[in-house]
Computed example of a mutant assay.
Amino acid sequence: MKALFSTDGLNPSQSFRRWRETLVGRGVPLEQARLDDGPFAAKLEAAGVGPLLLLTRVSHGAMRSEATRGLIQRNGKDGTVVVQRAKAHVESRLGDPTLDAPQLPAAVGVSLRRLQELFHARGQHISDWIWQRRLEVAAKRLVDPGSAHLPIGTLAFGCGFASQARFSRRFKERYGSTPREYRHAAFESIP
């Protein structure tokens, strides 16, 4: 099983929001609401069959999920396929600091306006999603023991950030701590 997403290591105040963003980003048409005020934990796992990853396990804390007619219509097959192709294109070029929203339409065969509409229907902006993915990859690398030897600037550049200062600012906005503090806290908790 491969973990596609986990709230482990996330700021508890942001874990539910990040969980919803992840599901929306994967084309899951569900309205979700918390059922308690306790810490929220969730995990999305998959197993591979050849080159395909198949969703096999979803576990989460107390919440209500509902597939509404509007969400199902907004996430119709046509739009989902285009958005997934755009996201796959981004994933394959995440480390390229020149990657931006205007490049995507040509890669997936739609106009920029149409692609923006499809992302907006999922409650996202294209550029915000690109930055979100870069930050998520950077956060994983910061706590990965195999990347502990990498300077933070090198890690930032490898995730597509053009400057360490911009990376640090965006990271702190997203995770509530600097990359250095985040890394230190992760390795400090290892026995």
Results as ranks from 00 to 15, higher is better:
33 A>E: 11
30 L>R: 06
78 D>F: 02
23 L>S: 01
125 H>K: 05
57 R>N: 14
95 G>L: 12
100 D>Y: 00
88 A>N: 15
61 G>V: 04
40 F>I: 09
19 W>G: 00
174 R>L: 03
119 F>G: 05
152 I>G: 01
86 A>C: 07
110 V>Y: 02
160 G>S: 14
18 R>P: 11
136 E>I: 06
32 Q>N: 00
188 E>A: 15
187 F>T: 11
50 G>A: 08
172 K>R: 15
146 G>K: 12
40 F>G: 03
176 G>W: 09
42 A>N: 07
16 F>S: 05
155 L>T: 10
152 I>E: 03
71 L>W: 07
45 E>H: 02
132 Q>E: 12
148 A>D: 04
121 A>N: 08
20 R>W: 01
61 G>N: 09
29 P>C: 04
99 L>Q: 06
154 T>W: 00
9 G>V: 12
8 D>L: 13
129 W>F: 13
61 G>I: 08
72 I>N: 03
110 V>T: 15
28 V>E: 01
172 K>D: 08
102 P>V: 08
40 F>S: 01
43 K>W: 05
40 F>Q: 03
21 E>Q: 15
103 Q>G: 06
59 S>D: 10
2 K>I: 13
132 Q>A: 04
146 G>A: 08
109 G>C: 07
96 D>Y: 08
128 D>P: 12
104 L>F: 06
59 S>K: 15
146 G>C: 04
42 A>M: 08
166 R>I: 05
90 V>H: 02
85 R>H: 08
156 A>L: 13
191 P>R: 14
38 G>L: 11
5 F>D: 01
30 L>D: 00
143 V>F: 03
143 V>G: 03
113 R>H: 14
160 G>R: 06
54 L>P: 07
110 V>A: 07
140 K>M: 05
22 T>P: 00
78 D>C: 08
78 D>V: 14
